[in-house]
Amino acid sequence: MHPSPGTARPRTTLGAVALPSLPPERLRAVARAADAAGLEELWLWEDCFLSGGVSTASALLASTDRLAVGIGVMPVPLRNVALAAMEVATLERMFPGRLRVGVGHGVQDWMGQVGARVDSPLTLLREHVTALRSLLAGSEVTTDGRYVRLRQVRLDWPPERPPLVGVGTGGPRSLRLSGEVADATILTGGTTPAQVARARELIDEGRAAAGRQDPHPITVYLMAATGPGATERLEREQRAWGHEPGPEGGAAGSAEEIAAAVGRWADAGADTVVLQPLTGEPDPEGFVRFVAEEVRPLTP
């Protein structure tokens, strides 16, 4: 739920992305800088064929004291759901409350490269998320789906408080599915405020169809650039990603200008805004410090 005009808005969570283009050996330094600066969340991408999401998250959680680490997202065709549940449960028990979990149907070309492409990605996503949430809740699961088949599977070490399972997506059918079966939704960089608002509507349609009343937070990645030539650099990045260049799909400028942009995405329905540095960012440690120390104090 989001407040009516004139009422206090819940505090927006602010995070940053550690891009997978960084060599794995650089990531612990970025996480330590984020932790020392007071950043709330640092998000990782499990893009093919770069760093593994679970192994990287484990290393970063172990290298920091309070930082939350998000995996956004793990492609479900790459993992048996029982293994995914074991890995998530292990991390949550080791680092309670500091793991953010996202799953998705994967980039289909990549899934084809590794022989994991399925005929119905949405069916797999539905079956996987449903089973994953049940396993993390400590339930015994038996299911004979199209893709997910389990017989009397129960985790020996389920987490005391299961983390929210978010779905990374953007299409209308996937957004409705996320509202129906997941706990949260993750929206990619380039998503405009209007698209966030529309995503919230579609998610709520799925929640209503499933009779769900629990909150469903939305996390959105927001491309951000600061320093000399920030606007021009952001627009080049947007074009490289195939997005329409301009302020509706990213934030550029000073800490004040970026914080104001975060507010626009939050007003549209985002509960967490994760600032995404540009590809080739020369100082990722400096970027996370900028987000935590300069943008965070100005954010609603």
Rank of each mutant, 00 (worst) to 15 (best):
Y221K: 02
T272D: 10
G106I: 03
G72M: 14
Q195R: 13
E256I: 08
L135A: 05
G104W: 02
A210Q: 01
P96V: 10
I218G: 00
M74E: 05
A252Y: 09
G206N: 01
G286M: 09
A116M: 14
W265Y: 06
A266L: 09
E201V: 08
D35G: 03
R79Y: 15
W265G: 01
A84R: 00
V220R: 00
R126C: 00
D156I: 11
S4G: 07
D214E: 15
L155I: 11
R100F: 06
V101C: 06
P96N: 12
G269H: 09
P282A: 05
M111F: 03
S55F: 14
T130Y: 03
E140Y: 04
L78E: 13
Q276L: 13
P172L: 02
R32Y: 03
T279S: 13
A57R: 12
W110E: 11
R133F: 06
R93E: 10
W110I: 02
P245Q: 04
A37I: 11
D267S: 12
T13C: 01
V103A: 03
T226Y: 12
W157C: 10
V17H: 04
D65E: 15
A260D: 14
L19R: 10
T231F: 02
R212T: 00
G242F: 09
V165A: 07
A194E: 15
A268G: 05
L222P: 01
V69E: 13
W45E: 14
F287L: 06
A33S: 15
L136V: 01
A89F: 07
G206E: 01
L19A: 08
V167Y: 05
L42P: 02
D109T: 11
R11M: 07
A261Q: 15
E257V: 07
F95I: 05
E237Y: 05
P215F: 09
L27H: 07
G38D: 08
L42I: 08
